[in-house]
Nucleic acid binder design. Structure first.
Lengths: 215, 215
DNA sequence: ACAGTTGAACTGTACTACAGTTTGGGTCAT
DNA sequence: ATGACCCAAACTGTAGTACAGTTCAACTGT
């Protein structure tokens, strides 16, 4: 710990700040899926130039929350059955691969902590359940020891987090905890096959629940 | 097959075309790693406005070939030991996971075809070896049946392809073919453990070769 | 009901401008 | 020479204006 820890010059651009801010708003549901981000309106409201907004939105595109359509500008992504299934398939493959590995002690501890945090959220602050849930799975993927895959998974998570918000999916604490405990227990016992089976079941249930919400 | 298959209006923007063009040039080595993409120069040379170039470069950023540094603009990514190792680690995890699955007949055929194409390139057109090599591995990852992972892997491949270019790595046809044949044979025989071991060895050798080139 | 027309709103692109930052020399003292 | 310091040129980040082409929804006539 240096005496200068945390000291950092404000090295960021207006466009980057705008991108961050917009990302937050979109994640919070201020823009619904399929909504267009109208440049002039946003520029005027925030008191910046239109090209700056344009750049901010291009940065946003990096995170996958919006995509560009020619002559229509930036559009907030919308969940479809196919997209959600593709998302969960990727998750399932990664988590399955992760569980095939032998956890190091500190990794097992990280997963355990994530689980405890999830339980705590379920008991006290329901609004945090989804985030804790996703953090638990991120900890599982971390077993792969690959920063690139961690980042990729974080991207999937961000997208999924958004879908869950706009579909206003409410998780029922008891079920969620039971499912995750099963995974953790199997992992602790070194029972890979069971852990993998539990993940598969977990993903399967999730995607079915979401599909049902899409009508 | 509809009667209108392949018919598509030319729906693209100037910025997108510029991004594609720049990507090509960078991949071809016109800009070396660490080089800055100077906006005014490019804009003047191509006869477009600077903000259009800026947008093109932001699009380029999506593919990971360049990254932005504040007040320095877009910089072509440079290979480092850490980056290359992270890249290969991700590859190894994905391909290992893929080989753990049972290939469907058409998947096995696709992999076989990719291998044949690689052999053909090794015998006739050496310049295509790297591309065919990477295509072979892409076919393996396709075993995972996940479009999202396919796309992610394609991104890794693009990045790696660039590193190989700038490091002007030349592959020795015989070794390359032998290594890949070992993987394919194991896969055909349904011998997963051997296939996985071969992939690991293959990746290990590759990353060591590259590390050596980085000094 | 429906095809066609029209106009407002918006995107894609160009051009200009300027403050702040980086950079590659020079200069100067050591 | 070496290093500290300074300066001007080059460049980025951002603002602002302009306009052609596209989209979209409302209006019109049939």
């Amino acid at each position: 710990m240096s005496a200068l820890d945390g000291l950092e010059v404000r090295r960021t651009t207006t466009a980057q700040q705008l991108a961050d801010g917009l990302s937050e708003r979109i994640m919070a549901g201020a823009f619904g899926p399929g909504d267009r981000l109208r440049e002039s309106a946003i520029a005027a409201e925030l008191g910046v130039a239109r090209n700056t907004i344009r750049e901010a939105v291009r940065i946003l595109e990096l995170t996958g929350l919006v995509r560009y359509e020619v002559n229509r500008g930036a559009v907030v992504i919308a969940p479809t059955r196919e997209k959600i299934e593709a998302l969960y398939t990727a998750r399932e493959r990664l988590e399955t691969a992760a569980l095939a590995r032998t956890p190091r002690p500190e990794q097992l501890e990280a997963i355990t902590n994530a689980f405890d945090a999830l339980v705590e959220a379920a008991e006290n602050d329901g609004s945090q359940i989804v985030d804790r849930d996703l953090a638990f799975h991120q900890a599982i993927v971390a077993l792969l020891d690959s920063t690139r895959l961690d980042e990729f998974f974080a991207g999937l998570t961000k997208e999924l987090r958004f879908y869950l918000t706009v579909l206003s999916k409410q998780e029922t604490p008891d079920e969620v905890i039971a499912e995750h405990r099963a995974i953790l227990d199997a992992l602790r016992l070194g029972d890979r096959d069971t852990a993998v089976a539990e993940i598969r079941a977990h993903v399967d249930v999730s995607v079915k629940r979401l599909n049902a919400m899409l009508g």
